[in-house]
Design a protein around this nucleic acid. Sequence first.
RNA 1: GUCCCCAUCGUCUAGCGGUUAGGACUCAGGAUUUUCAUUCCUGCAACAGGGGUUCGAUUCCCCUUGGGGAUGCCA
Length: 481
Amino acid sequence: MEREIRTRFAPSPTGHLHIGNARTAILNWLFARHGGGSFLVRIEDTDQERSTAASEEMILEDLRWLGLEWDEGPGVEGPFGPYRQSERQELYARHIAGLLENGRVYPCYCTAEELDLRRQERLERGESTNYDGRCRSLTHEQKQRHEREGRRPVIRFRSDETRDVAFTDLVRGDVLFPGSNIGDFVIARQNGIPMYNFCCVVDDHLMRITHVLRGDDHVSNTPRQVLLYEAFGWETPLFGHSPMILGNNRERLSKRHGATSVSQYREAGYLPQALVNFLSLLSWSSESGDEILPPDRLVSEFTVDRLSKSAAVFDTVKLTWMNGLYIRNLDANTLGGLLRPFLRSAPAADLSVERMETIARLLQERLETLADIDEKAAFLFADRPRPESDEAAAMLGEPDAQRVIRELLTISGNADSWHAERFPELMKQVQAATGVKGKMLWMPVRIALTGMMHGPDLASTFGFLGRDRCRLRLEAALAGP
RNA sequence: GUCCCCAUCGUCUAGCGGUUAGGACUCAGGAUUUUCAUUCCUGCAACAGGGGUUCGAUUCCCCUUGGGGAUGCCA
């Protein structure tokens, strides 16, 4: 019988939401939405040293920003909560007790130092680095002695070296791990708090997770988890391991490769839809062959069987291109609103909804990120844009250029309208009066008005600047440098 | 060391025994445009190597090489 699909994203709150983890979240979200199931978020904060509430909030905020709303999780209580592992300790304790009782796990009193030493020796002898099993069959008396010495045990899983573990992976097919390689892994620390592999199994089962989609780096954890499911007598969920995201040197994406957290991209002016679209295309492709896929298309077209098995390099150049495309596809009003917080250099008067919309329309097709706006729009607000180069200054100094500007100043002096639509007509009159045309007609005006030889549509710029600013700039250009 | 996995243009990818190996980004050239940008067109560029299997391998199998991951009282 088909169960309702339930997936989860289980971040550990030890920093920002990493790009790689965001992709995992997207995969789980897409899979659940595609199948009409539920997407949950579970906070894996069993590492007390590193977990912080602040980073939990940052991660949740980034997920919300990406548009990955969850059906159960922090802030959205459901029937299988709590959704924070630190709040589920009694649950874990109960399950460990059960395993302790039937001997599937045992206390191990070896200290980290002893373990380290012995592992080193075994490595040098060319032996397996697994736990050597010293505490496997301690007598009651031996345990007592250790306790009296003040040792606190960790809890280890008793695994069978002779039993290989197999599971079927949704993306890589049948995977087999030799039992000799699994070893007696730790399921609970000295302080009693259970570890990832254990909590993950208990929670996924109790939360009725049907599909576990996660990064490649978890494949070798999977056999341990499968063993745990077996020990509990539980059915395993289906596992699917997506390939890693690599940096340009083909190593696992890390800080060394520049921006690696979702928040950094948000701050750099990337659109969530573009980021989600781009990340979805890493190790996955739509059967349609299309690449520009807004969230709704991603949801309807996503299937795990189109996930590839090989890792993908995170290419910010293509991401940036895609972001520019999404920016160009925005309507000017929306874009204006998104742009406002990035526009540091503009006077307050130009930040109104109407003005922002105009600015957006003016510069929309030359923005790759929202953050580009500050630099691209700067010329609009400068008191008197200086010519950007000697070449521009020289051109402005040409006799014809001066005539053009003087004529425009004269003609526009009586102009009643300073709207962009009036501009072409004004320029036609200037051309008629001066006999100058082509580049020598337009370029001086462009340089006078913007200081630049390249820029957005002149008529619109003229309209945006308005009477006072235009006249000021034209007069300045006449006066010379 | 041991175990697992991966391998098509520089990058992201399509391909699921027979294709002129397709698309996207980047780059180069061109068209449009008063400039630039946008948009459109064209071009450069790939099956890691070696063995098999097969009438036929990019595709299936093995080995080599290269790369990634795991090997934690992190997740």
